[in-house]
């Protein structure tokens, strides 16, 4: 049957030990570097270092410490686990409600890369818009990439405005959304796709996700719940790893879509 696994206590149930192991993943560190990074004084951290050495996860090296062979096998598995748990813990009810399978599975497996997220729910006056908290960073972005399966009333105006300000704007839209956009705003769409820094891609497949907006400053996405319902909200992260994740999400849909060159 299953093993007791003594090391679980060692690696998880002390924040000092856990953080130290993750810090040493980047290579050997001196005790001074450890104290500065973890903001600890000598004697409490030395006590934890001794435990980690005793359990064979750490070895002394020259003036500092580094992960042992055992540590190097284990610590890389801790990081994705802890980051996934953290993303779920911070917005537990949100993730429990959503249909996570609407994310491509290779990106769902890396959901921890979203890092610190916050859910923004617009007040009634902004109920069809992006929340005001992201409008400022949106206009400061250099590139804006959006994937969307629903129609935002702000579409032609906002995106045309961003493009006119010299921002690179790319959109992947589901076919029905594109059709609606063309029938309601033919002239604006024509103007938009004729700009050098603006692109529209149309996707024949269903985009399962509600929407994802990723720029060089933040990612803001919204999902459909398990019972198939949608309410206006944005899950926003400003972390670097999240931007990379969002770019891959955009590329995933762009790669199965076709660019529109004329209306």
């Amino acid at each position: 049957m299953s093993m007791e696994l003594q090391l679980i206590d060692t690696i998880f149930f002390s924040d000092k030990r856990k953080n130290l192991l993750l810090f040493l993943k980047n290579g050997p560190k001196t005790i001074e570097e450890i104290k500065t990074e973890l903001e600890v004084s000598s004697s409490p951290i030395m006590a934890q270092i001794r435990i980690l050495i005793k359990d064979g996860l750490l070895v002394q090296k020259d003036e500092g410490y580094e992960l042992s062979v055992k540590g190097k096998l284990i610590v890389p598995k801790m990081e994705p686990l802890l980051s996934t748990f953290r993303v779920f813990d911070e917005n537990h009810d949100y993730w429990a409600r959503q249909n996570l399978r609407t994310l491509p599975s290779h990106l769902l497996d890396r959901i921890g890369e979203l890092g610190k997220c916050m859910e923004l729910v617009p007040d009634r006056t902004h109920i069809f818009d992006y929340p005001p908290e992201i409008m400022d960073p949106l206009y400061r972005s250099k590139t804006v990439m959006e994937v969307s399966s629903f129609f935002r009333p702000g579409y032609p105006g906002l995106y045309l405005d961003l493009a006119n300000k010299g921002i690179e704007v790319s959109m992947v839209l589901e076919k029905p959304i594109y059709r609606k956009l063309v029938s309601d705003y033919r002239q604006e769409v024509g103007e938009f796709i004729n700009m050098e820094n603006a692109q529209i891609f149309v996707c024949d497949n269903k985009i399962e996700l509600a929407s994802s907006l990723v720029t060089d400053r933040f990612i803001s996405m919204s999902m459909i719940s398990k019972d198939g319902r949608y309410y206006n909200h944005e899950m926003v992260s400003f972390e670097k790893s999240a931007l990379e994740w969002g770019k891959e999400l955009f590329n995933y849909y762009r790669d199965m879509a076709e660019q529109i060159t004329q209306v």
Binding site: M3, L5, Q6, L7, I8, K70, L73, I74, K77, M78, P80, L81, T84, F85, F88, L100, L108, D109, I111
Partner: peptide, 19 residues
């Protein structure tokens, strides 16, 4: 299922080194 996948890959390595 996500929690399981992450736990599985860590527990496998811990089992390997503790065994």
């Amino acid at each position: 299922n996500q929690v399981f996948k992450k736990a599985r890959s860590l527990v496998d390595v811990l089992t390997l080194v503790e065994k």
